[in-house]
């Protein structure tokens, strides 16, 4: 464990908590893409199948349980508990265009052609594009609530910090996972536009509004 990975995990955890609290407290999932949250639930499910068979550390296991539980809770709130506030008309990204290519790619490019490894690879590829429905929805509505932009910022920063974690691990641990690194780069690049808007607008107290 290094500081970049730890800060990355904390940032990821806080993004998940921010979203849970936003929906629960405001009893509304307005402006939130249910499709992205569904994709994240798939990402965690396919990545943590070894949750019970492969103990790495208490930290690792407990974080995995929290990620899986909170992603399902978020999906449940959007599609069940507060579905009346779900803005389906603006959440129209075709997720099959994300799931099918990443699934095919995980069969073609992976470290080991075994079910668990292919599912892990699929989850890595899917995670790198899972935020697209959410970013697409923000661009369609032309704006995002400030709390939603904090959620997106924390979520974007987590994988950016992981990029530094991989540099660190390459330098000091001879650790190198090209699949995770390339997917992490794609994931971070997708946030660049949002990062720019967040830093130039939200941090100056303005509302995040995209040129529609």
């Amino acid at each position: 464990m290094n500081i970049f990975r730890f800060l990355g995990d904390i940032s990821h955890l806080s993004a998940i908590i921010i979203l849970l609290l936003k929906i629960w407290k405001s009893r509304s999932c307005a402006g939130i893409s249910g499709k992205s949250q569904l994709l994240f639930a798939i990402v965690f499910t396919t990545r943590y199948l070894d949750l019970f068979t492969n103990f790495i550390s208490f930290y690792n296991t407990s974080m995995k349980v929290v990620y899986v539980a909170s992603s399902y809770a978020t999906v449940w709130m959007i599609y069940s508990k507060f579905k009346a506030t779900y803005d389906g008309n603006h959440d129209t990204f075709r997720v099959e265009f994300l799931i099918v290519p990443t699934a095919i790619l995980s069969f073609l490019v992976n470290h080991d052609f075994t079910p668990l490894e292919i599912l892990w690879t699929f989850s890595i590829y899917l995670e790198s594009v899972a935020i697209l429905p959410q970013l697409f929805m923000v661009s369609k509505t032309g704006e995002a609530e400030t709390i939603t932009s904090h959620y997106l910022f924390a979520l974007g920063i987590y994988r950016t910090l992981y990029l530094f974690n991989w540099i660190w691990r390459y330098q000091f641990e001879e650790f190198f996972d090209l699949i995770a690194i390339v997917a992490g780069l794609v994931q971070t690049v997708l946030y660049c536009d949002f990062f720019y808007l967040y830093i130039t607008k939200v941090l100056k107290g303005k509302k995040l509004s995209l040129p529609a």
Binding site: M63, H111, E117, W120, Y162
Partner: peptide, 10 residues
């Protein structure tokens, strides 16, 4: 080189 099989990152 590539990490050990058990992916130790979240």
């Amino acid at each position: 080189e590539v990490l050990s099989e058990d992916h130790d990152e979240l």
